[in-house]
Design a protein around this nucleic acid. Sequence first.
DNA 1: GATAATTTGTTCGTATGTATC
DNA 2: TGATACATACGAACAAATTAT
Lengths: 240, 240
Amino acid sequence: MELERGKGLTLWRQIQKNLEQDILDGTFPPGEKLPPERLLAERFAVNRHTLRQALNNLVRKELVRAEQGRGYFVREDMVRYALAHRVRFRENLSRQHREAAEELLDWELVQAERRTAEHLMVHPGTPLVRMRTVGKADGLSLCVSSHYFSQQRFPDINLIYGNTGSITATFRHFGITDYTRMQTLITARMPNAAEARLLQQSRSKPVLELESVNVDGAGTPIEYGRCIWAADRVQFIVDT
Amino acid sequence: MELERGKGLTLWRQIQKNLEQDILDGTFPPGEKLPPERLLAERFAVNRHTLRQALNNLVRKELVRAEQGRGYFVREDMVRYALAHRVRFRENLSRQHREAAEELLDWELVQAERRTAEHLMVHPGTPLVRMRTVGKADGLSLCVSSHYFSQQRFPDINLIYGNTGSITATFRHFGITDYTRMQTLITARMPNAAEARLLQQSRSKPVLELESVNVDGAGTPIEYGRCIWAADRVQFIVDT
DNA sequence: GATAATTTGTTCGTATGTATC
DNA sequence: TGATACATACGAACAAATTAT
């Protein structure tokens, strides 16, 4: 790594170009940690500030991201997740050539609380199946969700989902060939310990919480879901 | 309401927890007036000052607000902000009986960067007006935004906006009677120091970042905006 | 759970070269 | 030529977040 001093291009620009090249040609693949500042500064034989100037520019250009106490990481593009009339986890991911996976964490029989009942348009106390799942993209946890279904309409839904590993396929099993999303509520907050663990992310990074209701062809609510998304791994797209 | 005296937790902390629980479980629903200090003090069998300590902490935590001469009120839910085909800041807030205000922080003449240019469908380098604004609800900062407009199409737009204090009114001045939102991108992250200051919120609370493009009746992009929202003060609604 | 080590973030200070008026 | 402003580069120290011990 020899830099030309005093020949037109500044040192930090040469370093930036050098690192950009390494990122683009895959020497540092997406998600990879760069060597620490100290090492890079040594390698380029410059002061740490000079090196930081180059890195800061790469951060500004969104090629890398900096994490205090951890290091610099090559940015992997966020998953772009479309919130349209039809929302399908697998479709959304396969459009971006990512491998989608849904896993059943656990399930439970519960009674509908006021809020959940309102969304599903049932009486409070109605028996519901709550399934907790985790959604992954290319093996990386993307979201943890709680799905609520009427037990009467979808008996043993947990078994079906456990076999298929897909909400869409599960609904198909119950004769629902198409379903659409009625409404989505979006908020952001900090995760609790369990959420951070399930998402394999730091507790100091925010999560996005989406509440949604899916309805069948007749407009009857069939699923109420609360999904917690790792905020730095996803970007939602609303087309209106 | 029996408090434990001399057993670790101070009285006012016990009272605070007690009231928090009542608020969270809906005993005191959003917007409700709490019983007056005197009554609460009697009920907990403590001095009014002890009770005030608890209430002051709830005010600090933004669970209740105090109004001199009127009483304490449970803070209402977050602002619910609809992301529909037509998005109007004032309309969205007035629907919830909140007082909307937009303020111009500063403005600058800039050259379109690649990303901005793409969204506005202009060539990179095109002269743009960037206005930074802050949106408030009931006097509380809700979002800080950067709006980008073509300088050619909207000369002196900063003056118009400065006078009207409304994006909608500003567009009307330029003959645009209706505009709609094409796309909104949503992410969440932690705020930087400047954003936290402008939003008057803690740096340890997340923000929601919305990128959006508004188009005129002919479908031509007229505004590209990046808005940073205080995540704990707003909930977005997507109807699909 | 507490402590130390590692790593990035921030703020001083100093010096030099370059462009502008 | 001088004065000024700005970008570049190096050095030292400390703060803050994370990870390892």
